[in-house]
């Protein structure tokens, strides 16, 4: 990435307004909500687990059967997804290497059983990425495969992050 591109991007970001006026209907809806009894919170952990299971199932199905379902995407998404592979610029690679280093250090702090499970999860993610890359080589125009490839980077980052955070008990979280 060139410095000039960063400068131009920063200038464009700096021109964005941070405030956007919400629709008028919001305040009456808020009043209605706060003047009635609180509802029970949704079991988000269960919802997240279900969503992850769906994603894993969809990924396995698409990779093994090679029949991506139709999906709708906007033009901006198409431009980004088409260019998505992990960035190669030195800044990104340095940040990623630092995160991986921290991950490896923290992984060593875990008990052998947990460590084995995490390493197995990482291997699954990487195998899935390799499978998706091969599928993409055969079907380079498939937006679903592009999405899935992208999601493997997301999953790998999440795994690093989960391990780093789980082994950092003093991290302040509100």
């Amino acid at each position: 990435m060139k410095d000039g591109a960063h400068e131009s991007l920063n200038e464009q970001l700096a021109r964005l307004s941070r405030d956007v006026v919400p629709p008028e209907k919001l305040w009456p809806a808020i009043v209605r909500e706060i003047t009635r009894k609180p509802r029970r919170a949704l079991p988000m952990a269960l919802a997240a687990a279900a969503a992850s299971a769906c994603l894993a199932t969809a990924l396995t199905w698409v990779v093994l059967h090679g029949r991506p379902a139709a999906t709708s995407r906007g033009p901006a998404t198409a431009g980004i997804a088409a260019s998505f592979e992990e960035p190669r610029d030195p800044g990104y690679l340095a940040a990623r290497a630092a995160l991986q280093q921290t991950f490896r250090e923290r992984l060593a702090l875990l008990d052998p059983g947990t460590r084995t499970q995490i390493e197995a999860s990482l291997a699954v993610i990487r195998r899935a990425r390799d499978d998706i890359r091969r599928a993409l080589a055969a079907s380079p125009e498939s937006p679903v495969l592009e999405q899935l490839l992208e999601s493997t980077w997301h999953d790998e980052f999440d795994l690093y992050d989960d391990v780093v955070r789980a082994t950092q008990p003093t991290l302040a979280r509100t």
């Binding site: 940040a95 630092a98 995160l99 921290t102 980052f157 690093y160 780093v164 950092q168």
Partner: peptide, 8 residues
């Protein structure tokens, strides 16, 4: 997030 994740 971890700060390294944030930067990446």
């Amino acid at each position: 997030l971890a700060e390294g994740t944030c930067k990446a």
